[in-house]
Design a protein around this nucleic acid. Structure first.
Lengths: 340, 340
DNA sequence: TTGTAGGCGTTATCAG
DNA sequence: CTGATAACGCCTACAA
């Protein structure tokens, strides 16, 4: 592999000059610039990224931590591909690399080590939950003031950077939509409590009901784990309680899809017998029968925002506010499942 | 950041010994090993990956090239998340990093440069097509004998490593399934011709028909671009030709979903008026009404296989066969859309 | 089994 | 504007 020295020789300049030209640093005579570029092209030379990283003391990579693979199915793949696309866009436009890090299920992930080993300069944590090990890992990151950002999950620690969607409001909107149609008894199938945004959804649900002067009825609140299977399982209970509710709010599309599937198998006609509002607006939302009324979440934007902020911080451009705390708006997409 | 020197001092050994212990290389006295490990832990020391890479002359990363983002939607996100999960598994188990590379739509991607800049030691190319620029880029890789692998797309060049699924056979099976039900007039909605596997599907379709003594009827062959929208668009033509066919084979689930949606809007009852067999077995396949009979493709396995082979080759373990050429089996999943 | 020392290709600082 | 030159942290013969 040809290196800087050879280019320098061919161009008849010093190695330092080659570096300057290729990095576009400092003033230089146009003629030497051209000579160097010419030589580089002739020799098929390009900067060695590893050597640069080493010299600079930075990897030039943004890490994206993904939950343990099998669990990916708990989230929609839609969620990840949108987030990743957004992150990818930011990363590319800023000339960084995107390192994918799959959480090791066995070892409690030591986030700090990613930085110590210098594999990443910053990282975004997807699918974080509120379990102890996770909390610890993330608090450590905050303590050491490392550049990182958690996606869509709240933490008490004010030093933890977060980009999230406003699920409290999103859920409020969803339930309000049903209330506005004159429906009064509205059930709720929520996802796993280890995610803070499940709690947010619950708050939004309650707020909407209370504002309408309706006392929330615990007997029509159910819990799944965001998987389709858990939606199918919930169908039995929901079917049993069908006389108690006219509609149900479900915390994500996948569960809603499972629920509808299960209900239909139990002979329930949708949306006639039960109106459904779901959450995410994934690709599948418009495929179901009836198509899902659902809350659209700007995953792509969230990914891009988190990455941009993080990378800007590295470049010291936006060094002003070091902790990121963004809450993006959701949007209700009305389709047939809510009875339109 | 603490470095090797400090650990060496604390442990009372040379720096070389520290390296040996941490890399588990060469024979060493158990006592010194322990002393070093102890010191490393005390100082919170971990190997600097960038420095290691630099010294070794390898990045330690496997690159995965993705098509330009907006186009991702042409493939199912299912496809990518499965492939990535498989690749991720292999990469993790072999201690490599996974660098995600989004194709730049503007620049013709210069794959070789990824290696020259030493960003990756090997790479897997997803969503490659048969356009000129792509061909050139890939042939260059082959010429330079760089370790890479193209996913699911054929190339004439025998030096190009490929992991694919046997779509000829998969398509044959799909059509055979319909023939076995006594159906004789079977249409075909294929995807974009710039992907070799579209041609494979066509071959399988024709072979099945010919084996059954049926003359393929060009007037019921349609072309979309693997997107749902293109399926919806095809619905008009298919509906017009409905009297000519009892069934249709569609090259992927997304188009099939669009097609069914479009047909239904035109008043067509499924599967009564038209049997459908699709391709991919994505998550959505079982969500549609009726659920899709479809050909399952082992994307996860394909990803894992490609990555493993590539990384083994780097480690010189399987240096025997340098060109990878694997063709994995597909499997027909029978559901209601084909009229069962 | 362990220590010594050269080298990897840049970056960045200082002179000139 | 350009050239020397010391880091950077680790790997790996080679020696002992």
């Amino acid at each position: 592999m040809t290196n800087r020295k050879e280019v320098a020789e061919l161009a008849g300049v010093s190695e330092a000059t080659v570096s300057r030209v290729l990095n576009g640093i400092g003033p230089m005579k146009e003629s030497t610039r051209e000579r160097v570029l010419e030589a580089a092209k002739r020799l098929n030379y390009e900067l060695n990224a590893v050597a640069s990283s080493f010299a600079r003391g930075r990897s030039g990579n943004l890490g994206v931590v993904l939950p343990y693979v099998p669990k990916v199915h708990l989230f929609s793949t839609y969620y990840f591909s949108e987030l990743l696309s957004g992150i990818g866009e930011a990363v590319r436009s800023k000339g960084y690399g995107l390192l994918l890090l799959f959480r090791d299920p066995t070892a409690t992930y030591d986030y700090v080590s990613l930085y110590r080993t210098q594999r990443v300069d910053a990282c975004i944590i997807l699918g974080a939950s509120a379990i102890e090990a996770e909390l610890e890992g993330i608090n450590r990151l905050a303590e050491e003031e490392l550049p990182f950002c958690v996606m869509d999950q709240k933490f008490d620690n004010p030093l933890v950077s977060i980009v999230a969607a406003d699920h409290e409001q999103g859920s409020y909107d969803a339930v309000k939509h049903l209330l506005d149609k004159g429906l009064r008894t509205i059930g709720f199938l929520n996802g796993s409590p280890q995610y803070s945004n499940s709690w947010d959804r619950m708050s939004g649900y309650r707020r909407a009901l209370q504002e309408a002067g309706i006392q929330p009825d615990e007997s029509i609140m159910y819990e799944g784990n965001y998987s389709r299977t858990s939606g199918i399982q919930a169908a039995k209970d929901v079917h049993r309680d069908l006389h108690k509710m006219e509609a149900i709010f479900v915390s994500n599309d996948r569960m809603a899809i499972g629920l509808m599937q299960g209900l239909r198998e139990l002979g329930c006609r949708l949306p006639e017998e039960l109106k459904v509002v779901a959450y995410d607006d994934s690709d599948a939302a418009s495929l179901t029968e009836p198509p899902l009324t659902t809350v659209k979440v700007p995953f792509y934007e969230m990914g891009r925002l988190a990455a941009e902020r993080l990378l800007d911080r590295l470049t010291d451009k936006g060094n002003t506010e070091s902790v990121i705390n963004e809450r993006l708006k959701t949007e209700l997409k009305v389709r047939k499942s809510s009875g339109n």
